[in-house]
Design a protein around this nucleic acid. Structure first.
Lengths: 334, 334
DNA sequence: GATAATTTTGCAACCGGTTGCAAAAAAATT
DNA sequence: AATTTTTTTGCAACCGGTTGCAAAATTATC
């Protein structure tokens, strides 16, 4: 079916090695041979099989892309950027949908069977141990959006969630909010835990009262809407820090349903800056993480790992920023 | 590095074939041998290399998943369903981000180099000829969300866009709208062309006046917003049929900006029923395509093609339905 | 217990490439 | 023109599996 090395070699009247060398860069072939081979290859429509090549070179150019939040619009960017960034370097993403599965065992097996060159675990909800499992299996791995911990044994690219939590508290404080609430993502997510910790610590330092702390069951509009009911029980809450824009939008609609005006009666601060955050209907003030930088850095790092597996684990954190829109009252002038 | 067949064979004291056979179902191995092999394999942590296997069996279990609309939330479902549906059958999606590229040539080459077993082209914007290119290259292909045409030479799974266009016109007619507009997706997309044709034909038959026809530049909120300006020039327009929910939401916000109330002053009908369509801020009446069915059917079909490549091209169309919410006035009672 | 039928096993060739090595060819030096 | 150096080439082994085939082992039959 497919055209092979051998057929090209025969047509060109050279050895198989000669053909192979024409298609491997850095190999030594004379101009005349190369020309003959290229002509024959073209005539037959030959392209080297990467599968066969990988058997000999031990490089598949496949990168496992492991994700578990396929329902969050925030991931559209992630997929788009990862795929195009990998493609630029002639690498292919092998997509794995975790959907529920949180034990790395099976996934490691699976990607090992495909001899992927490296793996990018793109999820903010799993502990670092998930990524470490790949490391242990000898597969280069990057944990993108992963939990930052000083004694890292695996590459992590992302943000400092605790710092971002503190940033949220400061954002409230700067706008003279006194009584606030935290409406996080799922409590089991490491990002939620870190942001929550940072938020509460900073709130205490800044003299903010955190009147309510609750968590949405998942990263959906509906979960945000449901969890917001809890927050609304306390009438004193002036502003809510949400762990995700989608959750935040659900919460906003719940607040409006309860007759509250935004930002007059209650303020909202989101997280992620998804496309919809800028729509008129929400005009959400939110914390943005520099996704493009994070992803470019991750790809760069995974490539580096493949080339030099001994490389010691690195943590790369990028700064987040508050995108000012209309869901919080303005900064209080001093 | 990785454990190979040979090492397992040595430890188990059997031939390489015996090991291979224990891991290929349907092969003949005695219970005693199998046991010995399995024990040795476990001890070494052996898993057969799918890459090496594929060289001999000519099956990689890789399916190319080609998409070009990574920015539309409608695609979250598509990715989620495709990946999980393929995984269920032990197939792996090799993701290709078309992003701009509309010539199939390079993509075909690329997927051929990875010897994918089949390809799913998941896009409603490209002509069938794009998918046909894979067919010509001898790669089983399904065009999901593709253009339906009677003389198909390639499998198509999706909806009858022309019929859906007509359905939109009927939806307007049932609610006694008289003067309407069409705000389609990009004009180059085949789905837009078909829906537009169906809409206009049915409108004529039903005595609706199509006062404005315009197209958004891409499938984004902003493009919908921009294109809506054009529609708003004609004050007589009572309802707008949009080619996509995202576009529709942009259009709705543009209308509200212009001081129009929905649905009192102007009605909107969307397409796709993305998650946000049900949010309070939009409460969008929209046409839903049964994505889950379409994708399950596509996967089933691609598997069928792989097993039986001679299979003749089939068209599978699924019915769409109007999801009634609040962006159109109610059906007029007779 | 001998023979026939069936199952299991290992050998060796193959899938489609790469690559170290030594021989052959070409280029450079004297 | 002969010799040395450098470049190019083909051979053959290898990457990690599968599989047709014939021999060996087992099971069934008489």
């Amino acid at each position: 079916m497919a055209v092979t090395l051998k057929e090209v070699a025969e047509l060109a009247g050279v050895s198989r090695s000669a053909v192979s060398r024409t298609f491997t860069d850095g190999a030594s072939v004379s101009a005349r041979t190369r020309e003959k081979v290229e002509k024959a290859a073209k005539a037959l429509g030959y392209r080297p099989s990467l599968i066969a090549r990988s058997l000999a070179t031990n490089r598949t150019k496949l990168i496992g892309l492991v994700a578990n939040n396929f329902q969050n619009p925030a991931f559209l960017d992630v997929f788009d950027l990862f795929t195009s960034e990998l493609q630029k370097r002639e690498l292919r993403p092998l997509l794995v949908n975790l959907s529920g599965e949180t034990s790395p065992k099976k996934i490691v097996e699976l990607l090992r069977q495909y001899s992927v060159d490296g793996v990018i675990v793109a999820t903010s909800t799993l502990p670092t141990s998930f990524a470490t499992a790949f490391q242990t299996a000898g597969i280069p791995v990057i944990h993108t959006f992963g939990k930052f911990q000083a004694n890292a044994n695996v590459h992590v690219v992302g943000i400092d969630n605790e710092f971002c939590g503190a940033m949220a508290a400061r954002t409230f404080s700067d706008r003279s909010y006194k009584t606030v609430a935290l409406l996080g993502g799922p409590e089991t997510a490491t990002s939620t835990q870190d942001r929550s910790a940072g938020f509460r610590r900073a709130a205490k330092e800044l003299g903010l009262r955190v009147a309510k702390v609750c968590y949405a069951e998942n990263y959906t509009y509906q979960a945000g809407r449901d969890a917001m009911r809890d927050v609304l029980e306390d009438d004193a809450v002036e502003a809510v820090f949400c762990g995700d824009d989608l959750i935040c939008m659900g919460a906003m609609d719940a607040a409006r349903d309860a007759g509250k005006a935004i930002p007059e009666d209650i303020g909202f601060l989101g997280f992620n800056d998804i496309g919809m955050a800028s729509w008129d209907a929400y005009s959400l003030t939110t914390i943005r993480q520099p996704i493009r930088d994070i992803i470019m850095s991750s790809v760069e790092l995974v490539v580096g790992m493949v080339e030099n597996p001994g490389r010691s684990p690195e943590i790369r954190l990028f700064p987040c920023s508050v995108i000012e829109r209309g869901s919080l009252r303005p900064v209080t002038e001093l």
